[in-house]
Structure formats: C-alpha cells, structure tokens
Nucleic acid binder design. Structure first.
Length: 479
DNA sequence: TCCGTCACGCACGTC
DNA sequence: GACGTACGTGACGGAG
C-alpha cells in the first residue's frame, strides 16, 4: 500500500556500478571507499554507529560516487536505467507469479513413483543399498565394486558428474539408471518440493530479484530462483504448467529476444558478415555452418548446424579449442579448425575480441553498450590459467552485459507504459532475454504489441532486435 | 555422546 | 561466460 516516490540516489547501486565485482555494498564499505574518512578504527559490529556516520557523511559519499559515475560516462545508466529499475523489480517481487500447487503435487507424485522404482533397480544391480545421492558412496560402487574405469577425478575423489556417467553408459546397465535417477531427484527436490514450499498465502511465489549481485549487470533471482525453471527436457518443462495467471481473466504473455547476444556481438564488433546475416534475417546457425564448413546454406546438415550453434555459443563465451572439443566430443584439432575457420570468415569478430582483451589489459576494465564497467584483474595474472580466464571474461562481459543493459531498458519502458496507461496487465518476471507479463484478457493484443515494440526498440543497433511473442494459459504454453 | 549449525564441494537447473 | 539451490560430508561447539 506504500508507493515508492522520488527515488534518485541509492548508494548500494551507485557503488555496484563503480565496481560490480564487490561482494558486499554495506555502509561500512561505502564509508571506507567514498566518504573520504578513515574507517580503520570503526568497530564492524557497531551497526548503529556505522549507520549514524553513514547518514552524516551521505552528502560526501553521494557526491564522490556521482563524480566517479560521471567520469565513466555512466550517468544515463545510473539515472535512466538502474534507479528506475528499483521500482520495477520491487513491483515484480510484490506481484509474484501465481502457482498451481496441485499441478506441482501431481508431478511430484509421479516423480516419487519413478524414483522409488529406479532406486530398487539400482540397489539390485549394485547388490547392496547405498545413498545414491552421495557422490562419495556412488563412486565406491561404480569404480571399486563394479570396477568401471575412472574418467575424471575431483578434489575429493572420483567424479561422477553427468559427463562421466555419459561416457560410462554403455559399459554397465546401472549407469543409465543413475543418470535417470539424478534427473528425477533434481526435479523433485529443487522444483516440485522446492517450489511448493515457496508458495505464499496468496497462492503466489514471490522471488527476490537482486540488482547488485552479478559482475556483468544481469539481475539474479533467489528464494526461489525463477530464472532456472527447466525447459530443455520435456519432463522438466512440464513444471512450467504450474505457473499460471491469477484467474481466467488473465493470460501469460512471454516476449523473448531472438539471439540477443549474437546481435549485440554483431553491433559492437561491426563485423560485416554477421551484420549482414541479421539484416537479412537469416537462420544464424545455418549461416555459421555454411561459412565454417564452406558449403552452401541449403546443404547444411542437422549435425553441421548443431555444431555451428556450439561454435556460436563458444564465441560468446570466449571458449578455447579445448572447451569446444569437449562440448562437441570431437578432437581438439578439429575444434581448432572450426574456430580458425570462423575467425577467417568473421574477421571483424576476431578483431573485436582481440581489442576487448587489449582494453582489459591497458585500462584494467571492459565496458558495455551503456558504459557499464567491469574490472578484470585476472588478465594480468602470472598464472596462465587465471590469465586465460581473464581473457574470456574480457570477451564475454561486454556481450552478456550489453544484453543485460538492453533488457533493463525494455523493462523500465514496459513498466512505465503499463503504469502511465493504467493497464491491468503487469510485468511479473525477467529471465535474462525474456519478459513475462500477466496480461488482462481485454488487453492481450495491445500488450503483445506494447511488449514487442518496447523490447525491439529499447536501443538502436546496427542490426534489428527481434522479439518473439507467445501467449498461453500458463508459462509452458507461452513458448 | 548426541544434536544442531556451518562451510564447503559437488552436481545440475537456466540464460 | 553468468548465476542459485539441494544434498552429503566433516568440523565445531553446546547440552546432556
């Protein structure tokens, strides 16, 4: 019942923009960095004293922070994006997402039955009962009792992750059952039972959205995390059927950016070929396959397209030939040839990625479209692995972070139009490249148009931004 | 000795 | 590349 008004400065957020890698933005920290006073004598447990001092020094802190923000050209990012976003996120938290507990219970019950059945079968095959959830105990069964080959080790013992199990699957009948068991237990514990326990008295789930957690500018979601609800596998995807509108006067509308990160890459690199692909609205992975494998677009096989897709992902992450070879289960040499071919055909991308690394080296940080910064100290490490990691950060952060800038702009615009036009529809969720609106039925067509145009026109790039809109009676259907 | 709390590593869900 | 959560495990400390 209380409306937030006249928010114009938030010290935590200002400080986050000045260094998004910091783990805490508490008052003692801010005093220490921006008030100009010496905080070494302050007792960290004296919360009241710190708060009093913070308020006393607030004018200085604010002025110093704004000076720094100004120096980095982040005025617009701060004033027009992050500050207005506070109210948007607050609204999304308060509204929440209605969840049908019965659907989750039903799915949970099915999962329990299957888990029990698998558990019995696994015990029978193993010849003994043990805790399948314990990697330690599972390791003993697989690698000591059944004598399966050890593929990989962790700090503490045998690795039993999905990649390892995949490789062992044709060596012993127990392995597939364990893979299956793991999937089902994940669904049940995290998504069925986990989500049910988060449903509020109003029948809705109210996640927390944190604006100062990620180093790239993305927002994060906790208690529960609504940004990792299953979608890839049909079995898990059904969880989304439980996310429903308030009542039959509403529907769920989802608007998601098509290939936003590759479009951002096309824009910031100004690579001619990549820009051309998007301007001509081509199937981007098919085009990449055609370039990397040197064949016409209409001769690209499904396998080639899927490999090209992995190459595109790899480019965004700054992935090495080693990383790509593992991803595609091909030799390092073959992976290297894919990447080399890619950079030959998209030389603008290569030049840009090199320049991002140079930026990180001589300025110490990289920036996004809206001048958001991230320091990359790792890049000067004498440890080769740490240095390589820093290089990947330098390549990935401007891409991931610019995409985050763009959807934040869209969120502020969608939210303020809904508010100004007194619409009954409401923005309830963001999942990095997707916005979800609980839309009043009379407003469906209007909202589809509103979401699409505000998202697509959030910024002007050298390539079009394309948004796909879907409507349904639950989150599952709105895809 | 028992029990609760905590930090950590591992595994895995999303974009 | 960016996250958050569940679970098992081992260390720790207070209560009995």
């Amino acid at each position: 019942g209380i409306e937030l008004k006249n928010l114009n400065f938030d010290g935590e957020i200002a400080s986050y923009l000045l260094n998004p890698s910091e783990s805490k933005y508490d008052m003692l920290n801010l005093l220490n960095q921006y008030s100009g006073i010496n905080t070494s004598g302050i007792d960290a447990d004296d919360k009241n004293g710190i708060a009093a001092l913070y308020v006393q020094k607030l004018d200085d802190i604010k002025r110093n922070m704004l000076t720094e923000i100004n120096k980095h050209g982040m005025n617009e990012l701060f004033e027009k994006i992050e500050m207005p976003l506070i109210e948007v996120l607050s609204s999304m938290e308060c509204l929440g997402f209605k969840v049908d507990a019965q659907i989750l219970h039903d799915i949970g019950f099915e999962l329990s039955e299957e888990i029990d059945k698998l558990t019995g079968e696994i015990y029978d095959i193993a010849g003994s009962e043990f805790n399948i959830n314990s990697p330690k105990q599972l390791g003993v069964i697989l690698f000591e009792k059944l004598n399966l080959p050890v593929i990989k080790k962790t700090k503490t013992g045998y690795s039993t992750d999905a990649e390892v199990l995949e490789e062992l699957s044709d060596k012993h009948e127990i392995v597939d059952k364990i893979i299956n068991y793991r999937q089902l237990v994940k669904l049940k514990s995290t998504y069925t039972d986990g989500l049910i326990s988060c449903i509020g008295k109003d029948g809705r789930i109210h996640s927390s959205f944190n604006q100062t957690v990620t180093a790239t500018g993305r927002i994060s979601s906790t208690e529960p995390n609504l940004q990792n609800i299953p979608i890839k596998m049909e079995q898990g995807r059904r969880i989304r059927k439980a996310f429903v509108p308030e009542n039959d006067e509403y529907v769920i509308i989802s608007g998601d950016y098509s290939q936003i990160e590759l479009r951002v890459l096309a824009h910031i690199s100004q690579d001619k070929s990549l820009i051309n692909s998007f301007v001509n609205n081509e199937d981007i992975h098919r085009r990449t396959a055609s370039e990397v494998f040197g064949i016409p677009m209409d001769e690209v096989t499904p396998l080639q397209r899927s490999r090209a897709k992995a190459v595109n992902f790899g480019i965004i992450y700054g992935q090495s030939d080693y990383g790509l070879s593992k991803e595609l289960k091909i030799s390092r040499k073959e992976a290297k040839s894919y990447i080399d071919n890619y950079f030959k055909r998209y030389s603008g991308v290569k030049d840009y990625l090199d320049s991002a690394i140079l930026d990180a080296k001589d300025k110490g940080y990289v920036t996004t479209l809206m001048n958001r910064i991230r320091y990359i100290p790792e890049i000067n490490s004498t440890n080769k692995n740490v240095k390589k990691f820093g290089e990947r950060l330098a390549m990935n952060t401007p891409i991931q972070g610019s995409a985050a800038d763009i959807i934040k702009i869209a969120m502020v615009k969608v939210y303020s139009r809904i508010k100004k036009e007194k619409l009954k529809s409401r923005l309830i969720l963001q999942v990095h490249d997707e916005l979800i609106v609980e839309a009043y039925k009379n407003e469906i067509d209007y909202m589809k148009q509103l979401i699409k145009s505000e998202m697509e026109n959030a910024v002007k790039l050298s390539v079009p931004l394309v948004v796909d809109i879907n409507v349904g009676n639950n989150w599952y259907e709105a895809k």
